[in-house]
Each structure stands twice: as C-alpha cells, then as structure tokens.
C-alpha cells in the first residue's frame, strides 16, 4: 500500500457489518415481472399504440401538385434543402461547425446525392419513353448553366401563380421556361402514378432498404412538415419528444429538445452541433457524477436520504436511548 493512501477497509461505506434481514430475491423479481406485465397489458388494452400511415410521393403529388413541382424544380436547379445541404450528401454546403470543429465536413460525403440527376433527370430518362420528354431532357442538359438557371428561375416564379388543372395537373402563365414545363409535367405524371416512389428507391440491387432519397425529397417539400405541424411535432414545438395522436412520446428527450427552444440555439445555423456538444458534455458529466466534487455532495447537502433511510435512523436512535 502506498504511503498516505487510506486503506480500502477504512471506507465506512464499503461493507455493511450491521444487521441483515431475510429476503427472497427470486420472489421479488417474479412479483415485479408479474406487476410490470400486468401494467403493460392494461395500458395496451386501454390505449393501444399509434400508427399513422406514411406519406408517399404519389399521395403528395396528388394532394398538392404545386408543392411537388415547386420542390422538383428546386431539386433541378440546386436550391432545395438537400441540394445545398453539404456533407454527407454533397459538397454544396459547408455543414455545421463550432469554432474550428467541423465533423460534418471532416467525415465527408458518405451518401452522395446529386439532386438534379437523382430526383429529376434520371427518373425522366429511365421511366418516360416519350420522344418529347427525352428531347426536353436533352435540351436542358446541353444548355449552359446560365440558361438553365434562367429557365428554372422563371418557372419557379411563375409557380407562385400556378393553378391546379384537371387531373391534378399544374398550369402556369405562359413564359420562356424552355424545356422545364415538359419535364415537370412528365415528372408529375410519373409521381402521380406512384412511379417516382419506386424510382427513387432503386439502385443497382433488387432488394431495397435505404429510404434516404425519397425521404429527403419529401422533406424538401412541405408535405411532411404540414402533417408534423398539425401533430405538434415541429422542432420549435418541442416536437422531438412528442408522439402522433395523444400518446406520450420520448419524454426522456426533454432536456435535448429544450435547448432548441432558447437563444442562441433557436436562431443559430449551427444549433445542432451546439446542442449535441452540450448534451454530450452533460451525458459525460452524468456518467461521472461520482467523481465531480460539488455534484456528488448534493445528496449530502439536501438530505433526502434521511427520509429514505428513516426506519434505519429511527432504529439507531432507539438503540442509542436504550
């Protein structure tokens, strides 16, 4: 033993040398299991569980064709949320950072998405066999980027005055949009028949499990956010801990979602990395509570323990009197 170090046996809390009472570990566990199973069954019978059907691109393009086309144009001209996201989807944005710490950038593009190609050009080329559509895609692809931007900007602006025509088609005032209207009406047609839901999932393989592309496409539109807002699930509605319907959600995320509601996080472009850092630090502190002076002394200062162990202290006091 090193000099000056207290022997372990001197720690009064290491071993209990006082009285013991008989106890049935297995019986206690069995009763606990029975009680919890019964409560779970009662809650299940009383409340069941939520299951709101997912949104499909087919539904979205039918229920709100203007929003669908607006989103598709933003994917084509590279102005959508995904198109400008940066890593891990593309190099078009810097990603979030905290001082010089840029993990998003450092870890690079692991799920590459070229929004114009993946969401518009490739589905049009692979699904629609009409010569007019192929010609429109070819015209668009061979135009200068300045020309492309002029067409898509004019078209995007005109979408503000768009009307939904027969068969859920989108009509806009005439203008110089180049091949964009043909491309968009074709893409809308594919989406409304359900073809785009499948097209965005396909890759080189037959079996599919990765929904990144269709989910990001829908997230760029307002279809998911509109449903979420109605259900109170938005980030600024403490939505992270909420569940659809009137079910309790992930209430254990209360502290995590709390930070997003207050400044500077509620207005910061780097809110996610700042909140992740704070929660990471707090989680580490939580694990290391026994080693943090001050925090580990709180239970001694606020003596809740006197209530918890009141039987024990009462016995000690009685023993002291006799």
């Amino acid at each position: 033993m090193r000099r000056g170090r207290r022997p372990l046996s001197a720690d009064p809390y290491r071993e209990w040398k006082g009285g013991y009472r008989s106890y049935d570990l297995i019986k206690e566990f069995s009763i606990a299991f029975g009680v919890v199973l019964a409560i779970t069954l009662v809650l299940t019978i009383l409340f069941s569980s939520p299951d709101e059907k997912p949104t499909t691109i087919k539904q979205w393009s039918r229920s709100d064709p203007v929003d669908f086309v607006t989103t598709a144009v933003s994917e084509l001209d590279g102005t959508s949320g995904t198109a400008t996201y940066g890593p891990p989807y593309n190099h078009n944005g810097p990603g979030q950072h905290m001082w010089f710490i840029r993990p998003q950038k450092w870890l690079g593009v692991s799920h590459p998405i070229d929004t114009a190609r993946d969401y518009v050009l490739a589905p049009l080329s692979s699904i629609n066999r009409q010569p007019a559509v192929h010609s429109a895609v070819s015209t668009y692809e061979h135009a200068s980027s300045k020309q492309q931007a002029a067409w898509t900007t004019a078209y995007s602006n005109a979408l503000g005055k768009a009307k939904v025509g027969p068969g859920d088609s989108v009509t806009i005032p005439s203008g110089s949009y180049g091949p964009v209207p043909i491309m968009m009406s074709s893409l809308l047609g594919i989406a409304q028949t359900g073809g785009l839901d499948g097209a965005l999932l396909t890759s080189k393989q037959f079996y599919q499990t990765d929904y990144t592309k269709p989910l990001l496409f829908m997230a760029d539109g307002s279809v998911l956010a509109n449903r979420a807002q109605a259900e109170h699930l938005l980030g600024d509605q403490w939505g992270m801990m909420n569940e659809t319907g009137s079910f309790p959600g992930q209430s254990w995320l209360w502290l995590y979602t709390f930070w997003y509601q207050i400044k500077p996080f509620s207005t910061s472009a780097n809110a996610d990395i700042l909140v992740m850092t704070i929660m990471g630090a707090l989680s580490l502190a939580f694990i290391l509570v026994p080693l943090i002076p001050g925090v580990r002394d709180i239970p001694r200062w606020i003596p809740v323990y006197k209530l918890i162990w009141r039987d024990h202290y009462r016995e000690l006091a009685r023993a002291g009197r006799t």
Partner: peptide
C-alpha cells in the same frame, strides 16, 4: 388516443398533456 393532443404553452415552454 388517435386525435390531436392538448398542449401546455407558456412562453417558450410547450409540452403535450400526455408527456
């Protein structure tokens, strides 16, 4: 419970009744 929940809203604090 498949209907919209009620919410307690006070300044920045917002929480669903179920939670």
């Amino acid at each position: 419970l498949n209907h919209h929940a009620g919410y307690v809203h006070w300044h920045f604090f917002q929480m669903s009744w179920p939670n």
